[in-house]
């Protein structure tokens, strides 16, 4: 994605804006909750802004931002201990919070399945399967070897298949306890 720029000089801010929708989607796919995802995006914007001298205009802004976001997420997770990593309840309530967003039950099932992946597998399959990065770019973003990314993506696929076959048979519908919280945050 480039070239959509007007004839004005490319600005850091403008490029950042262009990458934001995808950055939010990445954060949301990793974390599973809009509020936390957007907090992380905000932290990422601040960090990136402070480091803008390190960014070379014309290089891949999106990959640069994704790298910052990812590092920020993991450093926050380390600070908070295991709490964040624990899938128990962490993603779950967002299904009920934003039912409209994930449309079909099918997608909600998928979201739950994604949540059950180990974080390294989850980010790998998101980067390659949804964000549009190559394996090479994903490896760079995650700071690991190409082969590692490939094997994480493969394991993620296998695991998702297993999970979806299992959960397809029972009911992970929207959850009555948190349903009343629906649509407060993002309706306006």
């Amino acid at each position: 994605m480039s070239g959509g720029m007007t004839s004005e000089e490319p600005s850091f801010k403008r490029e950042m804006l262009a990458a934001l929708p995808s950055l939010r989607a990445f954060a949301m796919s990793l974390i599973g909750r809009h509020d936390r995802a957007d907090d992380l995006v905000q932290d990422t914007i601040m960090k990136a802004w402070a480091k803008q001298d390190h960014f070379e205009m014309g290089t891949n802004m999106k990959a640069w931002l994704f790298t910052i976001l990812r590092n920020e997420l993991y450093s926050q997770m380390r600070k908070r201990g295991r709490e964040v990593q624990d899938s128990d309840g962490y993603f779950t309530e967002s299904l009920a919070q934003h039912p409209a967003q994930y449309g079909s039950l099918d997608l909600q099932d998928f979201k739950r399945a994604l949540e059950m992946l180990p974080p390294d597998q989850r980010e790998a399959i998101i980067l390659v399967g949804a964000s549009g990065f190559s394996y090479e770019e994903a490896a760079e973003i995650c700071g690991c070897a190409l082969g590692t990314i490939k094997s994480r993506v493969n394991r993620a696929r296998q695991r998702l298949q297993e999970i979806l076959q299992i959960t397809g048979e029972n009911e992970y519908g929207p959850d009555a306890t948190s349903a009343p919280m629906t649509s407060r945050a993002f309706v306006s």
């Binding site: 929708p21 989607a25 949301m28 796919s29 994930y102 449309g103 998928f110 979201k111 998101i126 949804a130």
Partner: peptide, 11 residues
């Protein structure tokens, strides 16, 4: 499905 989920936020 992964793309659909992602796009729902990206859009």
């Amino acid at each position: 499905k992964l793309r659909a989920l992602y796009l729902s936020v990206q859009e």
